[in-house]
Structure formats: structure tokens, C-alpha cells
Nucleic acid binder design. Sequence first.
DNA 1: ATTGAAATAATCTCGGC
DNA 2: GCCGAGATTATTTCAAT
Lengths: 146, 146
Amino acid sequence: MDDVDRELIALLQQDATQAYAALGKAVGLSAGAAHERVRKLRERGVIRRTTVEVDPAALGRGVLAFVMVESSAWMGDSADAFLAVPEIQEAHVIAGSASVLVKVRCATTEGLQDVLRRLYAIEGVSGTQATVSLETFFERPVSPRA
Amino acid sequence: MDDVDRELIALLQQDATQAYAALGKAVGLSAGAAHERVRKLRERGVIRRTTVEVDPAALGRGVLAFVMVESSAWMGDSADAFLAVPEIQEAHVIAGSASVLVKVRCATTEGLQDVLRRLYAIEGVSGTQATVSLETFFERPVSPRA
DNA sequence: ATTGAAATAATCTCGGC
DNA sequence: GCCGAGATTATTTCAAT
């Protein structure tokens, strides 16, 4: 994991469709060497997968909210219950007054209300506190530099 | 934007390296037709870019926290100030008691303290409230289905 | 909008450094 | 670990429907 690897990751984060020849040129390596480096980054699990970023609004998910989920019980093995709600994009166990923080994307604020209803249906959930996003400044990949 | 498009998006989210022949086969189309559909999804901006997902810990960003940023002024044009902090992965203007919600990834809790310091240095920021993630249940792409 | 096939360009393999 | 070239496979274009 040297600076060349980090640079390759940064380049792939920007555009994972570019050819290995172009990647190699950008870091001063041959196409084969760049390919070999990326292969190893995948093998070691540093690069988890290649995926596409989608416009949420185009998929009918224009409303973004973060919901603090309070619970009256240990929620450490409740991942599946959150996974079952398709509008939930992320779920994290947190330290603080709430227990779980979820990131929700849905079509409308009515849809958000419905998500909250399904959250309350999860075993142990005793309360929710939703915060609606008015504007997203940015969402970007984890920086491999700095 | 029909069901075939949504299915193609779901397949690409799982693995954007697969060949158009395989994509087409999965949705009952020829490679050329699948390619044409994906090309149009990109053109219309539904697919924003192809990227790689990275293990944050492997990049020295094993600590995840969400920070509510309170302000004494309108923060609607402060995106650049948050962009300038590389540990900040997302920043959203929110409705509620705080003004901006940021998602932070850094190496250690000391690093988090340093990020908070830089947040306070931003014009108009009057307070922060950090919540550390103990465990991430999951992070997944925006579902094109359901 | 989809097909099938031809032209172009990429990935992948491997002997050698 | 990197290079370079050859073999393989995918992308991209296009005429026709």
C-alpha cells in the first residue's frame, strides 16, 4: 500500500471505466503493471467492488433523511430488521443517546412517515428522531490521500 | 425508465465490471441492446459515474462519526469550507436544531478531535455535536427496486 | 428499440528482465 | 515487481428491421 496504490485508487474512484493503459500512464507504469496492482488491491479487499453511482431522484428517492433510532434493548444483532427496509441505505450502531443511526432515501415525506412506522415495528425500538436534508452539499468517496 | 433499466442498474451496482453480454443475458436482451440502454442511462444522468468502493480502514480511516454542526449564520453557501476538510465524506444542510450534518472518516478519535477543530474554524460555526459509530450494520447502494 | 456481425480496443497471460 | 508482446475477450459501431 504505497503512494502509487493510493493514486490508482483515487483515479478509479473518479472513473472506474478507464483503461489500464491510461491508469498506468497517469502513475508512470505500464498497463500490465497497473493491472497487477489493481488486481492485488481487489484481492486484499482494499477495493471491495466496482459499482455505479446513481441519481437518487431519478429512482424516485428524492427525499433524504437521517433518523436517530432509540431503543429499550440491545440492538447489536438487529441488522437484518433494518436491511429489510429498502429505503434504508445505511445503518450504524452509535454511541450516544440514541442506539442506531440510519440514512433513509424515499420518494416523499409521506414515504418517510411510512419508514418511521416500519422502524417502530422493529423489536426494541422505542423512539425515532428524524432530520430531513434540505440540500446535499456533496457526497464523495473516502479520500485515499491526505 | 422501465423495469429492465432498473434491473440493469441493480446488476451494475452489484458488479460494474461484468460484460454487456452477461448483463443482457440476465435481462433477456442482446449485448448491444444492454449496452445501448446503459449508455442512455449514463447520458441522462441516472448513472452518474462508475467508481470503486474502498475499505475505509485499509485507507487509515477506521473511525466513523456523524457531526451535527450548529451555526449562527446562514450556511447555504459554505460547501467549499467543508469540501476543504478531506476527512469529511458527506455534508448536508438540514432542517432542525443544527444547520449542517457531516459524515466524517478519520484514523483515530484524536483525528476526529482535529476535524472538530477545523469545523469550528469555519465562518459561522457556533457548535458541534459528534456521534461516533461503534459498528456499521451496512452501507448499500440506493435500491432501484421496491 | 433491438439484433447480429464486423471493426476496434481493451484485458489477460506469459517469457524475460 | 515491472515490461512488452501476443492471445483472448470485450466494447463499440452500424446496417437492417
